[in-house]
Nucleic acid binder design. Structure first.
Length: 205
DNA sequence: GGAGCGATGTCCT
DNA sequence: GGACATCGCTCCG
């Protein structure tokens, strides 16, 4: 089994960790089937697009207003999942970074699906032969494809194998990294904090 | 393949 | 009450 990224990996500023996270595998353990025929499978995708959010200094970040009930996870230690509900129907997944007390985070925006594509399609409400691009290209899509919800995943430790959600380094070597402005925000929209694998088809639009 | 737009719940002011 | 780190559909080229 490839090594799970440790807490130290996430200890650094978000613009640093974002680039290092590209090319790693996001892995979700998932139970499929029913009754006695249930079995555990892996839903996995390679991280191809990440946005960096700073804490109190970043007007676009959820943490800009200070610590609240919703964003409390981000003020905790690095390597924990922050899952929030947006636009009345979607979830987005972040991972906390920086030392406890500093609220940097990484927004996972797109994966290249690697394991469990049929189950991902099912979870997305698509036919099993759906185009892979439709599965995990976009922050809301990847949460739906991996069945990541606030109730089940907000606040879990992604550095522990027992969480059922973690990030692995399988030795993949990233090519060129592209850095562009972040997507879908109105404040600090010009800052180049969106990191993606150059030329990868699974990067969101 | 791109612009426009509606759906929809939660959070914070 | 308004804004929102989105998505999928329609309509148009």
């Amino acid at each position: 089994m490839p090594p799970i990224l440790s807490r130290d990996f996430y200890l650094h500023p978000p613009d640093v960790v974002a680039g290092q996270l590209l090319g790693k595998l996001l892995v979700r353990r998932y139970k499929t089937g029913q009754g006695s025929s249930t079995k555990a499978i892996r839903l996995a995708g390679r991280i191809v697009e990440v946005e960096a959010y700073f804490g109190l200094d970043d007007p676009a970040a959820h943490t800009f207003v200070g610590k609240t009930a919703r964003n409390a996870v981000l003020f905790g230690p690095p390597g924990f999942a922050y899952v929030y509900f947006i636009y009345g129907m979607h979830f987005c997944l972040n991972i906390s970074c920086e030392p406890e007390g500093q609220a940097g985070s990484l927004l996972l925006r797109a994966l290249e699906p690697v394991e469990g594509l049929e189950t991902m399609a099912q979870l997305r409400g698509l036919p099993s032969d759906a185009a892979p691009r439709l599965l995990t290209s976009g922050p809301g899509r990847l949460c739906q494809a991996l069945d990541i919800r606030r109730e089940t995943h907000n606040g879990i430790d992604v550095t522990s194998a027992r969480s059922g959600l973690h990030v692995e380094d399988d030795g993949f070597v990233s090519g060129q990294i592209e850095v562009t402005p972040r997507v879908g925000i109105s404040k600090a929209a010009e800052r180049p904090l969106r990191f993606s694998l150059a030329g990868n088809r699974f990067v969101s639009r």
